[in-house]
């Protein structure tokens, strides 16, 4: 997949009037896209009194006080660690379980594997809302509600089928010869998978990881209904609760928001290329 952000740069040519106009229009459009984020940062640095006088522009008397308040009241470190552990463990399991399941689908031409592939692919499109009420009910009755494990089990089950679809498609493009050689050398099927195939799955694993980081880190509805305790609540429902609490204290609420946004932005800037090709490759969902 061509990487949309890494187009080679041309030597700057003389710009025609038309392309200057286009550049100006695109500059305005870009401003429209970045301004709401910038304004969030501006607001997070203002006193409320300044917000009323200067609601939309760079702060005159910038203060970090809002961040101190937000840090102390919203339980940021705990929420961050909850998000981090839920996301990491879920993704590790999704990668392992889905790549294993995809292997026989891609390699063994059996009625069983063909049927299972159709089953996995056809539930990809079913909206999560269809499982919401039964899942909550089930997790209540087995005592999993208000645990990180519940979130992990949910994400693994909800996202495995799409990952299986991606892995199966990728494994089919890998030549069989390597595995066959390994099997002739006395490897069992599990060793052939883990020693020969698994190391070749890095590109598609990158896609699976990126897509699931965005899905799980930013997910809101499921943790909203599955978690009623501060102890295990991840970042998104935490910031939502924080906004409800500080409904007109925009400065505190946006200081909290900036803190919520920072880990994602760091990950994006560090892994820009992977994010862009992951989004492009995973867009079929």
């Amino acid at each position: 997949m061509a990487n949309a952000l890494s187009v080679p740069l041309a030597k700057s040519k003389a710009l025609s009037g038309r392309s200057i106009l286009l550049q100006v229009i695109m500059g305005i459009v870009t401003l429209l896209y970045i301004y709401p984020i910038l304004n969030m940062v501006f607001l997070s640095l203002k006193e409320m009194s300044e917000i009323y006088e200067n609601p939309l522009w760079i702060p005159v008397n910038a203060t970090l006080e809002n961040y101190r308040v937000a840090w102390e009241t919203m339980g940021y470190p705990r929420a961050f660690l909850n998000s981090l552990s839920i996301t990491l463990v879920s993704i590790a399991l999704i990668v392992l379980v889905s790549s294993m399941a995809a292997y026989p689908i891609a390699r063994y031409n059996l009625r069983f594997t063909r049927i299972m592939y159709v089953v996995f692919v056809s539930i990809i499109m079913v909206p999560g809302q269809m499982t919401l009420i039964p899942i909550v009910r089930m997790f209540y009755s087995i005592g999993l509600v208000n645990t990180r494990l519940a979130m992990i089990v949910y994400y693994l089950s909800a996202e495995a089928s799409f990952a299986i679809f991606l892995y199966a498609g990728f494994i089919r493009t890998i030549p069989r010869e390597l595995e066959e050689a390994a099997i002739i050398d006395g490897c069992g099927p599990f060793a052939a998978f883990s020693r020969v195939v698994l190391p070749l799955l890095k590109p598609v694993t990158a896609t699976v990881i990126i897509l699931n980081i965005m899905l799980i880190w930013n997910d809101f509805l499921m943790p909203l209904v599955l978690v009623q305790s501060d102890r295990v609540r991840p970042l998104m429902p935490t910031i939502s609760q924080f906004f409800e609490e500080f409904i007109s204290r925009w400065n505190y609420a946006f200081a909290g928001s900036v803190m919520v946004v920072i880990p994602g932005l760091i990950a994006f800037l560090a892994l820009q290329k992977q994010f862009v090709s992951g989004i492009a490759a995973g867009a079929i969902k």
Binding site: S98, M100, A101, P134, S157
Partner: peptide
């Protein structure tokens, strides 16, 4: 094949397919 697919099958069946039917 069944062994390879067992973990995925279990989780998807119990926490995805059955809940869909239950809905």
């Amino acid at each position: 094949a069944f062994l390879f697919m067992l973990p995925a099958l279990l989780f998807v069946l119990i926490f995805k397919i059955i809940p869909i039917a239950v809905s």
